[in-house]
Write a protein that binds this DNA or RNA. Structure first.
Length: 676
DNA sequence: GGGAATGCGTTTTTT
DNA sequence: ACGCATTCCC
């Protein structure tokens, strides 16, 4: 679907796409089914506006990831000209950061506020949780991640903690007062430290737009056309912001597919799409229904899955692409059989001429690929995994970032708290005390060399840390120089802290490579928090040197497509996942997630079902049930293949090979090692 | 008092 | 395998 390098809307778009791309002023809702050319339409929309003389700087394109925005603007530039690169594009959070850097003072934030990423935010909540003695003896109190999730959901959905607690965590209903108290303390502490978490970025942007008419007018007149992609995965707060951004001129185009809404756990609601015409009564609506991605049998399965949804989406995808291979349901004996099947079929397909880059394995949860990763490693199949733990969330990367933050801002309590505990003999209490000492001294690093600390077991460590921070805090060294000091020092701490120090050390090198794109420490750090490097997102860039199979969570595969797709573990409890049972909304989201997985495939779709699940942390080994999403539909839409791998039991194996058991050797071994 | 070791219950998805 | 509470030890 590569468009040629000229803007020809008649030739390249169908009527509905064209109606959206060339729409005039006003609010516009584009409901775009999977594979219906949604991105293409937005790209042409941008190019069209610029070609009509709209200043590129006055177009704001809000997307789900930074990469999505960059990719669209790159394509628009290829269609029209380089002016399209000057369009303002990015995530809501990145846009909020940009605006608040300029207007934050109106809301009482100091000039250089910093961003707490998810991990930092959780650490702060954890700190307040233990500080306030909320977890008393023998009493269960929500963990820091649970608390943060509650606070976040409350902010993003506009619902109060009482309702969320009752709904999601009834077992903690008695703790409501404490949870609320902790929430208030968390908000106060962030404000006092001049930091914002992800949610604060959105809240503060909304507050700015609501409460400061002057700022709102300036912002609205700067961005005359607002385009929002993936609107089904925006939350109430984001929808409010989008509406406010368009409040002066009304030029708001939102694009989405309510059937692909999969971020409800983060507060997203497809009600934003449904209700759009209520907020903008004059909004025009365009439906994109023809699918250009998949062959009809794959869409038939997608339609069948969706037909069972509790809310009807009234959607039926159709395609004119030739092909009649039905999706294949493959039953294997267990997860290892599943891994073997996928590895073998991937290799066969490659033999048949399908490049690895045209194949993907999708899973519900990142760890579901564990067995497959081993199998692929054994067979030397290059792959890359996306989703799950992010690079910047790995403990060692966070450690290094804490060190860098201290070089930039020696009053960053969270960074002190984290880094100091790396030393032997320093735990939470000591770390907090030391951090307080430095911060009370206005961030004077000389505190670390005070005589009374010298005598402590970690006195030398602190003295050394001071020297390193002195170097990191020198902007004249340049980012590369500062980073080099940090990495060289941190490397010496790695081995005593982590068993797999060598692997982690390589990541530090990766971080140095990423840093080459920046010229100052503060820009580097804020970008790491707000737009983390996208190692976790599949890339569609074509690099023949680096051909690899993609392993991805379904969430991270959003918006992408492959010729051949494997979906693993179609088993109740895995997909749909256990936590969704008993929660109708979460369960329906799992269904939409499966719909997203199915509609990633262009030509061939393999659905894998292990008959037995091995026992894995908490779960006992047991016979697996076929995923309800498949069990409940008409199996006419599928081809079924039973494939039990038939490895002989271990006993027969020896005999077949004709090996004699040497009793004397066995006795010697037993005498030496005992029976254990 | 506070840090380190032990043990128990839990395990989704991520801007 | 990981976070968190409890217990163990200086």
């Amino acid at each position: 679907m590569a468009e040629s390098a000229t803007l020809d809307l008649e030739r390249d778009l169908n009527a509905a796409q064209r109606a959206a791309a060339c729409a005039g002023a006003g609010a516009h809702l584009v409901v775009a089914g999977a594979g219906s050319g949604k991105t293409r339409t937005l790209v042409y929309r941008v190019a069209y506006l610029v070609s009509q003389g709209v200043a590129p700087e006055s177009i704001l394109l809000l997307t789900f990831t930074r990469r999505a925005a960059q990719e669209m603007l790159r394509r628009a530039a290829a269609l029209l000209d380089e002016r399209c690169r000057r369009v303002a594009g990015g995530t809501f959070h990145a846009f909020a950061y940009l605006v608040l850097r300029r207007y934050g003072e109106l809301l009482g934030y100091g000039d250089g506020f910093t961003i707490l990423d998810r991990g930092d935010a959780a650490d702060l909540v954890g700190l307040l949780r233990s500080e306030g003695g909320f977890a008393r003896r023998g009493r269960r109190f929500p963990r820091k991640d649970t608390l943060l999730e509650l606070f976040s959901k409350s902010v993003n959905t506009g619902r109060d903690l009482a309702a969320l607690l009752a709904e999601d965590y009834p077992q903690f209903a008695d703790d409501l007062a404490d949870v609320e108290r902790l929430g208030r303390r968390y908000a106060e502490r962030k404000k006092a430290q001049n930091v914002m978490d992800y949610d604060d970025l959105l809240v503060n942007l909304r507050d700015l737009l609501v409460e400061h008419a002057g700022a709102r007018r300036q912002i609205c007149s700067r961005y005359r056309h607002v385009l929002v992609d993936e609107y089904q995965d925006t939350n109430r707060l984001q929808a409010h912001i989008a509406a406010l951004l368009a409040s002066a001129h009304g030029n708001l185009m939102v694009v989405g597919d309510e059937a692909q809404s999969i971020y409800g756990f983060r507060g997203a609601s497809f009600a934003n799409i449904i209700d759009f015409p209520k907020v903008f009564p004059d909004a025009r609506t365009t439906l994109l229904e023809q699918n250009y991605r998949s062959i009809q049998p794959i869409l038939d399965l997608g339609n069948a899955v969706l037909a069972r949804a509790r809310q009807s989406f009234g959607k039926r995808l159709y395609s004119e692409l030739p092909g009649d291979d039905k999706p294949l349901l493959v039953r294997t004996d267990d997860e290892h059989g599943q891994a073997r099947f996928v590895a073998e079929r991937v290799l066969e397909l490659r033999e048949e001429g399908v490049p690895l880059a045209e194949m993907a394995v999708l899973v519900r949860a990142a760890w579901h690929t564990n067995a497959l990763e081993i199998e692929l490693g054994r067979r030397n199949v290059p792959f890359r995994k996306y989703g799950g733990l992010r690079f910047v969330e790995a403990a060692h990367v966070k450690d290094l970032c804490a060190l860098l933050k201290l070089g930039q801002n020696p009053t960053d309590a969270a960074a002190w708290h984290r880094f100091l505990q790396l030393y032997d003999g320093i735990g939470p209490t000591t770390a907090q005390r030391l951090a307080a000492e430095v911060i009370d001294a206005g961030g004077d690093l000389a505190v670390l060399a005070r005589p009374h600390l010298r005598r402590r077991p970690y006195g030398r460590d602190l003295a050394r840390l001071k020297e390193v921070l002195d170097a990191i805090s020198r902007p004249d060294l340049g980012l590369a120089g500062q980073l080099e000091h940090a990495v060289r020092y941190y490397q010496t701490l790695l081995p005593q802290r982590y068993d797999d120090a060598a692997r982690r050390q390589r990541d530090l090198g990766t971080l140095e490579v990423i840093a080459e794109r920046y010229d100052a420490l503060d820009a580097f750090l804020s970008d790491l928090a707000i737009d983390p490097p996208d190692f976790t997102r599949p890339s569609r860039e074509h690099d023949p040197e680096d051909e690899h199979l993609t392993l991805s969570t379904v969430h991270s595969a959003k918006g992408l497509e492959w010729r051949v797709v494997f979906v693993l573990n179609l088993v109740n409890g895995y997909f749909p996942s256990f936590p969704s049972f008993g929660d109708a909304e979460a369960y329906e989201e799992e269904r939409r997630l499966f719909y997203v997985a199915v509609t990633r495939a262009q030509r061939r779709l393999y659905l894998l079902k292990p008959e037995v699940l091995s026992g894995r942390g908490g779960y006992r080994e047991r016979v697996a049930e076929l995923s309800a999403f498949l069990a409940e539909i008409d199996l006419e839409t599928l081809t079924e293949e039973r494939l039990y791998s038939d490895q002989p039991p271990a006993g027969e194996w020896l005999e077949e090979e004709g090996v004699d058991v040497d009793d004397a050797t066995l006795r010697r071994i037993q005498a030496y090692f005992g029976d254990g």
